[in-house]
Design a protein around this nucleic acid. Structure first.
Lengths: 331, 331
DNA sequence: CTTAAAAATGTAAACGTATAGGTTTTTATT
DNA sequence: AATAAAAACCTATACGTTTACATTTTTAAG
C-alpha cells in the first residue's frame, strides 16, 4: 500500500498538497491537481483510515459499533439490516458484536470498540443497568439504545410499545374465548420482557379475569426455553388453552413442543407471540404474531446515531414505534 | 482516554518502560512494574488499537472482515455465528459487511476493510471471478473463501459438496416415484448454483430419465424469486410433481406459492431444497432439506484464516464438508 | 575495589495523516 | 514598476504506539 508520501514524491509536490487535493481541494492549481490525481491513480493510492483516525480524533472514523445480544434471533438480524442500510448510505462501516447474552463477552467487545475509537454505538444493553454500556456513555461516546433503555440515563432510545403490543394480543385471545392464557417470558431482567408481562396482566385483569402465576414461565429468550417451558405448561394438570410467547425463538420452540404432543392448533391450544417473520405464513399453522418493525428500529437508531455524532449536544430522544397484531391461523 | 504518555508521567517512568510492562514484560523491575500497573489502573488506561495498528503493520490488529452476500439468509447467519465464536476465542473482532449482492457496495466495503488494515478476510465472493476480492488477494491479504471459490486462484476455501447434496436429494425424489422434477436455481453465476444443477442433472440422467430444461428456473437466490418462479412452474400446462429448490429463501418463497394455490404437499407437489433451518420442522409440512453444516463452515473458515494470518506461507487448503439429507414430510 | 556483563530504563524515530503557520509565486491595484 | 493581496505550496508537528539503540544501574566475577 502506497502512502501520501509516495504520491507526493511521484507527483513532485509536498504531502500537504496531496492532502489538500484529496480533501476539500481549495487553493490548489488545476495543473497540480491533475498531476496529483494521476499519481494517485498510478499508485492505486488508498488513504489509511487508521492514520486518519489517529491524527484527528475529532474527525470521523466512519465506523460504528453494533452490539446485539443474539444474532441467531431473526429480530436482531432485521435490526442489523436497518442499521446497515443507513450506515452504508452515510459511508459508515459496522463492527458487529454479538455478545450472546454473556456479559464477559460484552465487556471484551466494548473494550475493543473503544480502543478502535469508533464514532458511535448502537446497543441493545444486557439489561437496564448495564455497566459496560453506561461506562462508554459516561466517557462521552455517542450511543443509541435499541429494544431497551438505560435507567436514569439520558440517552437516545428506540423501542417498541411492548406493553401495548402484548395487551392487544392477549386481549384478542380473550375476546376469542380463550380462558387459560399462559405467558412464556424471555429473560426476566430485560425491560421488554417486563413490559410484555405488564400488557399480558393488564389485558387479563381488564377483562375481569384473574392472573394465574402458575401460567407465567420465565426463560432465557432462546429456542430451547420455548421448548422446555411449553412442555411444562402442557404437562400441567390443568393446562392452558392458549399461549402468549415472549419472542420469536420462544414461539418456535413452543410450536415444536405442541407438534410433538400432536395437539391441534388453535383448537386444543392457541398460540400467538412477539415477532413476526417473513416465513411465519408458511408455518403450521400460519402463525399469528405481534409484529415489531425491526428493520425500522434499526434504521431509526442509525439515523439518530448519525445525528448525534454530528451534534453531540442535541438532547436525547426516546422514540417509540408501534407494533401490529398480524392475525393468521394460530389463534 | 489517557495515553501511554499519561501513564508514563504518572508512574514516573518512560513510555518505553510502560510499553514493556504492557507487552511482553521482559527486562522490567518488579517494583517498577507495580508502579506502572498502578498508574494504568488509576487512569483506566486502554491502549489505542488504532495507534498500534499504525505503528506496526506486521503486528496484529485483531480485526477480521467478513464479507457476505445476504445477511437476511439464515445460512449466512449461521456461518457468521461460527466465525464469530472462533474469532472471539482468539480475541478477534469482526467487521461485518453485507453487500447484498451489490458489487458497488461490495467494492466500497472491501476498500474500507483494506483501509482499516484488517488482518484477514472471510469472504463469500459475488462470483468466481470477483475482481474486488481477487484484488485484495493479490495485495497479499490473508483470505478464506466460503461457499464459493475463486477460479484459478490458490486460496483457502471452505465449501460444501453441493453437487452430491443435490444429487442425493433429487435421487431420493426419483426413487420416491416423482417423475417431473423442477429445479429453482439461485443466481446462475455463483458456483454453488452450478454444482447443485449438476447434481440435479446427473441424478435425473443416472436414473434413465431426461432433463427437461423447461423445468429449470433461474432466479436471484432470494425469497421473491422463489415465490415467482414457483408460480411460473405451477402455471405450466404440464406442471412438475416435485420441486428441488436452490436455497432456503427460495424454498420458503416456493412454499408460500404452493400454499397460496392450496396444493397439498407432498401429494400434489413435493418439495425439498438446500439449507435446513432450526424451525424447518415447524413448517407446514415439516420440511425435508439438504442440511449444510453452516456453523461449521464459519468455524472452519475462521480457523483457517487465523492459521493463515500467523503463517502466510502455508499452502492453501480446500476443505469440502458434507451435506446431509434430512427427511421429513415434504417429499 | 575494579571491571565486565547483565539488567533496567530511557531516547528518538517511525507508521500515515491533517493542519497551523510560514514561504513563495501569481495576480491585481495604484 | 512597486506594492499589496491572494493563491499556491511547503515545513514541521502531533496523534499513540513499538522498537532499535543508547544509556544508566545493578550484579557478578576477578
Amino acid at each position: 500500500m502506497s502512502s501520501l508520501n509516495d504520491v507526493a514524491r511521484r507527483a513532485g509536490v509536498s504531502i500537504a498538497t496531496v492532502s489538500r487535493v484529496i480533501n476539500k481541494g481549495s487553493n490548489v492549481n488545476e495543473e497540480t491537481r491533475a498531476k496529483v490525481l494521476k499519481a494517485i491513480k498510478e499508485l492505486k493510492y488508498q488513504p489509511s483510515r487508521v492514520a486518519k483516525r489517529l491524527r484527528s480524533k475529532s474527525a470521523s472514523s466512519n465506523l460504528i459499533g453494533l452490539l446485539i445480544p443474539d444474532i441467531q434471533n431473526p429480530f436482531y438480524v432485521d435490526v442489523l439490516r436497518g442499521v446497515e442500510d443507513v450506515a452504508y448510505e452515510n459511508n459508515y462501516a459496522i463492527i458487529m458484536c454479538n455478545f450472546a447474552q454473556d456479559e464477559k463477552k460484552e465487556k471484551m467487545y466494548l473494550d475493543i470498540l473503544q480502543q478502535e475509537s469508533i464514532d458511535g454505538l448502537i446497543a441493545a444493553p444486557a439489561h437496564e443497568k448495564d455497566p459496560n454500556v453506561i461506562k462508554l456513555l459516561n466517557d462521552g461516546l455517542p450511543i443509541v439504545c435499541v429494544d431497551r433503555g438505560l435507567t436514569g440515563k439520558d440517552v437516545d432510545v428506540v423501542v417498541v410499545n411492548n406493553r401495548d403490543g402484548a395487551y392487544v394480543a392477549v386481549d384478542h385471545l380473550i375476546k376469542s374465548g380463550y380462558k387459560r392464557i399462559a405467558y412464556i417470558s424471555g429473560q426476566k431482567q430485560i425491560p421488554s420482557s417486563k413490559y410484555r408481562e405488564m400488557g399480558y396482566r393488564d389485558a387479563i385483569e381488564d377483562n375481569g379475569m384473574q392472573v394465574d402465576v402458575e401460567l407465567i414461565k420465565y426463560g432465557d429468550s432462546k429456542h430451547r426455553s420455548g421448548v422446555e417451558l411449553c412442555e411444562e405448561l402442557l404437562a400441567m394438570a390443568n393446562p392452558p388453552d392458549a399461549i402468549f410467547t415472549g419472542n420469536n425463538l420462544i414461539t418456535l420452540g413452543a410450536l415444536e413442543t405442541i407438534h410433538k404432543r400432536e395437539l391441534r392448533i388453535p383448537e386444543e391450544v392457541a398460540i400467538v407471540g412477539f415477532d413476526d417473520m417473513m416465513w411465519s405464513i408458511s408455518l403450521n399453522p400460519p402463525l399469528s404474531a405481534v409484529r415489531q418493525p425491526a428493520y425500522e428500529i434499526g434504521k431509526r437508531a442509525c439515523e439518530l446515531l448519525i445525528q448525534r455524532i454530528s451534534d453531540p449536544k442535541r438532547s436525547p430522544i426516546q422514540m417509540t414505534l408501534n407494533t401490529k397484531l398480524i392475525l393468521r391461523k394460530s389463534c
